[in-house]
Amino acid sequence: MIEIKNLNKKYDQLVVLDDVNLTIKDGAVTALIGPNGAGKSTLLGVVSRLLSQDSGEVFINGIEQKKIKPVDYAKMIAILKQTNQINVNLTVRELVTFGRWPHSKGNLSKIDEEKIDEAIKFMRLKEIENKSINHLSGGQKQRAYIAMIVAQDTKYVLLDEPLNNLDMKYAVDMMLILQNLVKKLGKTVIIVLHDINIAATFADHIVAMKDGKIIKEGSPDEIMDKKTLDYVYDHEFCIAGVNGKKYCIYYQEEEKKVLI
């Protein structure tokens, strides 16, 4: 379990995290939603230790974050950032191998090779494992990067907008894979999403943020609430029910028409 207590961070006078308190439950997909500048990516950065907080604490399974050695932390939490450009010409398998670095330090063991094979198979990349990542489609490349995270074999997987630049087919495919990370491999996934309806469809828990604060958290049914979303996004929403789930219809109140 990840516990975030009284977390604060600012850049100069800009507050990006404002007394954030949150508990991430194990064995679930938790989606962070909110407008640009809400603090979603910064929160992931602090939890992953890529960023330092000004005050507050993060606890991993009851242990204070700062008391865990970096090498041990890398075996507990993996993060995939928004931009993952590697200029070196690597094959898919070579990229996935980097995920084992916290365990192998470059000297791959039999167990490391097995974990790499499992990650490649899980992400359905076996047929292209020897192909250069520079020659992959956007969806294939993103699966390769997530395979690297799977090979790292951490309990917690943090993903910052992994659906960027993916078409609908690949986005849905990616979310199904992430659900399987939880269901089949026992991972806990925390993901930043821009598409509210994707969050409503695939997440178990949603955290809505605005101006560095958590406005509301709960099940998709609880968060897909007009009053909540209108406030979070400063936009007029219409919530519709489809097959037992709630979804957003984006429209302008004054014109009563769907935005295209």
Rank of each mutant, 00 (worst) to 15 (best):
I4P: 14
L7E: 07
Y11E: 01
D12P: 01
L14P: 05
V16M: 04
D19L: 00
D19S: 07
V20N: 12
T23G: 11
G27V: 12
V29F: 09
I33V: 14
P35R: 00
N36D: 04
G37W: 06
A38M: 08
K40L: 05
S41T: 02
S41C: 02
V46K: 06
S48G: 10
R49H: 05
L51G: 13
D54R: 14
E57V: 04
E57D: 15
I60D: 02
I60G: 13
G62F: 11
G62H: 12
I63F: 08
I63M: 10
I63K: 15
M76P: 00
M76S: 13
A78C: 14
A78K: 08
I79S: 12
N87G: 09
V88Q: 06
N89E: 15
L90A: 05
T97Y: 01
H103P: 08
S109M: 08
D112N: 05
E113Y: 06
E113G: 03
I116C: 10
F122G: 07
F122D: 03
R124L: 11
L125H: 10
K126R: 08
E127F: 00
I128W: 08
E129H: 03
K131M: 11
N134Y: 11
H135D: 07
H135Y: 07
G139A: 07
G139T: 06
G139E: 08
K141S: 11
A144R: 13
A147V: 07
V150P: 01
D167H: 04
M168L: 14
M168W: 04
K169T: 13
D173P: 06
D173T: 02
L176V: 15
I177W: 04
K187M: 07
V189D: 10
I191G: 04
I196Q: 02
I198L: 14
T201I: 06
H205I: 15
I206W: 02
K213S: 01
K216L: 00
G218C: 07
E222P: 15
I223D: 03
D225R: 10
T228Q: 00
T228P: 11
D230Y: 02
Y231I: 01
D234V: 05
E236L: 06
F237T: 02
I239V: 09
G241A: 15
V242M: 01
V242E: 02
G244L: 08
G244W: 05
G244R: 03
Y247Q: 04
Y247N: 09
